[in-house]
Simulated assay, not measured.
Amino acid sequence: MIGHGALVMLVAFAAGVGLLASLLGGLELVPGEIIGFDLFGPTDAWVRAHLGGILNAIMVIVVALALPAVGFGEAGARRIGFAIVATAWANTLFYWAALLSPNRALSFGDNRFGESNWIAVAGLAPALLFTVVVIVTFIAIARRAFARA
C-alpha cells in the first residue's frame, strides 16, 4: 500500500508541474525565460489534480500504517488495502479525465461545463464506484477501531 501511495503521490507531483505550467503559460527552464506553450485543462482542474492526488496518496499511506493497529486479520486487511488503493487510483484517473473532458468528468452526459466524451465516462465511472466502496471501507475501519478501543 505504501508503494501505491508513493506512486499516486508521484502522479500528483506531475500534476503540480502541470499546475505551474498552466499558471505561467509555459515553463521556466532558464531563469527569466519562460518557454511558452498551451496546456490542456483549466488551471483550477490542475489544482484539483495536484492537491487531490496528494491527499489520496496520504490516505493510502495513513491507512496502511493504521491497519495493524485496528486489528483486521490478513484477509480483511487485504480487502481494506485493495479498496483504499483502488479508490486512490480511481480518483487519480478522475482528476486527469477532468482535465481532458469538456464536462470536467462530472456527469456521463453533457452538463453546464460542456459536452461529455468517452474520457469523461472512463474517469467518472470508477470514481463513482469507489466512492461507495471507500465509504463502506471507512465505516468498517471505524467500527473495528471503536470495537478495539
Score class of each variant (00 low, 15 high):
G3A: 15
H4C: 09
H4Y: 14
H4P: 01
G5S: 09
G5W: 09
G5H: 11
A6R: 15
L7W: 11
L7Q: 07
M9P: 00
L10F: 10
V11L: 11
V11G: 01
A14R: 08
A15Y: 08
A15V: 09
V17W: 13
V17A: 12
V17D: 07
G18T: 05
L19I: 03
S22L: 00
L23R: 15
L24K: 13
G25C: 04
G25N: 04
L27G: 02
L27M: 11
L29T: 06
P31L: 02
G32E: 02
E33W: 14
E33F: 14
I34M: 12
I34E: 07
I35V: 15
G36W: 02
F37T: 13
F37N: 12
F37Y: 14
D38R: 10
L39K: 10
L39I: 15
F40V: 15
F40A: 15
P42W: 12
T43R: 14
D44L: 15
V47Q: 08
R48T: 05
R48V: 06
R48K: 12
A49S: 04
A49Y: 01
H50P: 02
L51Q: 06
G52D: 03
G53V: 02
G53T: 01
I54M: 05
L55E: 11
L55I: 10
L55Y: 08
A57I: 00
A57M: 03
V60D: 02
V60T: 03
I61F: 05
V63G: 08
A64G: 15
A64F: 12
L65Q: 14
A66V: 11
A66W: 08
L67C: 03
L67S: 13
L67D: 07
P68V: 13
P68T: 14
P68Q: 10
V70P: 09
V70F: 03
G71H: 05
F72N: 12
F72R: 10
G73T: 04
G73R: 07
G73L: 10
G73K: 08
E74H: 00
A75V: 06
G76Y: 09
A77I: 01
A77F: 01
A77W: 03
R78W: 03
R79F: 13
R79E: 14
G81I: 08
G81D: 12
A83K: 11
I84T: 15
I84P: 05
I84K: 03
I84F: 00
I84N: 09
V85P: 04
V85Q: 08
V85D: 10
A86H: 01
A86D: 00
T87Y: 12
T87M: 00
A88S: 13
A90W: 05
N91Y: 14
F94C: 10
F94W: 15
Y95V: 01
Y95I: 01
W96K: 06
A97H: 07
A97I: 05
A98K: 04
A98V: 04
A98G: 12
L99Y: 14
L100S: 14
L100D: 06
P102K: 10
R104D: 07
A105M: 03
A105T: 04
A105P: 00
L106E: 06
S107H: 10
F108E: 09
D110I: 04
D110H: 06
D110V: 04
N111A: 07
N111K: 12
R112S: 13
F113K: 09
G114Q: 00
E115F: 02
S116C: 11
A120S: 14
A120H: 05
A120I: 06
L124K: 04
L124P: 03
A125V: 11
